[in-house]
Design a protein around this nucleic acid. Structure first.
Length: 392
RNA sequence: GGUCUCUUGGCCGAGUGGCUAGGCGCCGGUCUGCAAAACCGUGUACGGCGGUUCGAAUCCGCCAGAGACCUCCA
């Protein structure tokens, strides 16, 4: 339990850093043994399971006579029959492709619960079916998971639902693809495993720098969830810059001055973004359109394009919705400009001195202030309206 | 070995028959005292070989390369 807790804590911390909303319930399989046993009872009662030596197995052969085992993963039982490897210790099953609903525990097995079959533990496909039924009902809309779980795990879940309640539980299955690093799959055996903590701190030999949680989030959203995503320094750096540009434009929105009429089309932009998201959550396309909007925002700022008051308000609301609420980004820089009064005033003082130097064409002093502020992490940008500064 | 998927310009990454995806980088320009930012311009990209079609990155076949699952644990 202590080990579990350690990883749970790390997981929660990292999810929070990535601004992933916490679930309402995080049920644990070990706390739902009774529900799982009840489901086994239903499956047995309906004739799709059998007991051998204190273990209970799902009768895939029988299930397949009435239903379609393999419909989700695009397999058919004949292929599975001829290709499933024969392993030791499975001899008590009728067929190698039958899966366990309840396993009798060996004497040294730690996790064990009493049941009418034996002291043992539930088969691993069962927990998801039992817990989702308890908390979401017999039928629910979307079941997610990694592509690697499609077969056998999700296939077995379907079979269990049908066998126990006579109908499927899930309307839509959404499977995300896997992660690769420099073109190779991420695996411990290849030694290219990177944890989120290592990404956030840059403490891994193949990383040339640290990447902020929002950079990681942006990077992931820039690829479709069904594609493999390849981690590399070059790609992550590109994401860092891209996100910076997007967030800068969001700030620029608040500085825009409205005109009589618009030369830009806000509703078209909105429509394109939303239809991309409606198309199987095509986040990369939605982000591409957001960048069209970035160009629009910057052009309005430089006076190349105009925007009406109504359109400006709509655009602000739209970017707030898209960037923060839907794509789930958050400000991560310490935005000292507003929050830290002492720092703000100190910088203002330095900027005043620098402006005086500039007025006297004392470029040496002006550049020294700019360069040294840059050294300590404060970036100055001379614009027409004055000097912008930000903490890097 | 079986089933399935993928291969896009310097890098990443969308795109299922005809229309500029987008980001990052490179190069040139505008602006600026300089720099940065911003804006403008700039890419005969679709693994190879054939086929279907008026037309293919997109459909079909073969070949090459990469990956997932096919077993335990979840």
């Amino acid at each position: 339990m202590e080990v579990v807790q350690k990883y749970m804590n790390t997981f929660h911390k990292n999810m929070e850093a990535l601004n992933v909303l916490p679930p309402n319930i995080e049920p644990r399989a070990s706390g739902h043994i009774i529900e799982q046993q009840k489901m086994i009872d239903s499956i047995l009662k309906n004739g799709f399971g059998y007991e051998v030596n204190g273990s209970v197995y799902f009768d895939v052969e029988k299930y397949n006579q009435q239903h379609n085992y393999g419909k989700l993963s695009g397999r058919n039982l004949d292929d599975i029959k001829t290709n499933t490897r024969v392993l030791e210790g499975q001899s008590e099953k009728k067929n190698s492709y039958d899966f366990a609903l309840w396993k009798k525990a060996t004497p040294e097995h730690i996790m064990r619960w009493p049941s009418r079959w034996s002291d043992g533990f539930p088969g691993w496909h069962l927990e998801c079916s039992a817990m989702s039924t308890k908390y979401l009902g017999e039928q629910f809309d979307i079941h997610g998971g990694g592509m690697d779980l499609t077969f056998p795990h999700h296939e077995c879940e379907i079979a269990q639902s049908v066998a126990s309640q006579g109908k499927e539980a899930v309307s839509y299955w959404m499977h995300n693809n896997m992660i690769t690093i420099n073109g190779q799959k991420m695996a411990r055996s290849l030694g290219n495993f990177i944890t989120l903590d290592e990404l956030f701190t840059g403490s891994h030999e193949i990383l040339t720098q640290a990447y902020s949680p929002m950079t990681i989030r942006f990077f992931i959203l820039q690829a479709h969830y069904r594609s493999t995503i390849d981690f590399s320094n070059e790609a992550l750096q590109a994401s860092e810059k891209g996100l910076e540009r997007l967030m800068a434009a969001v700030k620029t929105l608040n500085e825009l001055i409205a005109s009589e009429k618009s030369t830009v089309n806000i509703s078209s932009l909105k429509e394109k973004c939303f239809s991309a998201l409606n198309d199987d959550i095509n986040s990369p396309i939605a982000i591409a359109h957001l960048f069209d909007g970035v160009k629009m925002i910057n052009s309005i700022k430089t006076g190349k394009e105009k925007i009406s008051v109504a359109d400006l308000n709509e655009l602000k609301l739209f970017y707030k919705n898209m960037v923060f609420d839907i794509l789930g980004f958050k400000e991560e820089q310490s935005s000292a400009s507003g929050d830290n009064e002492i720092l703000g005033k100190s910088i203002e003082l330095l900027l005043t001195l620098r402006n005086e130097a500039k007025a006297n064409k004392d470029w040496g002093t002006a550049d020294k202030i700019r360069d040294e502020l840059n050294e300590i992490g404060i970036e100055l940008k001379d614009t027409k309206g004055g000097v912008d500064w930000s903490v890097k």
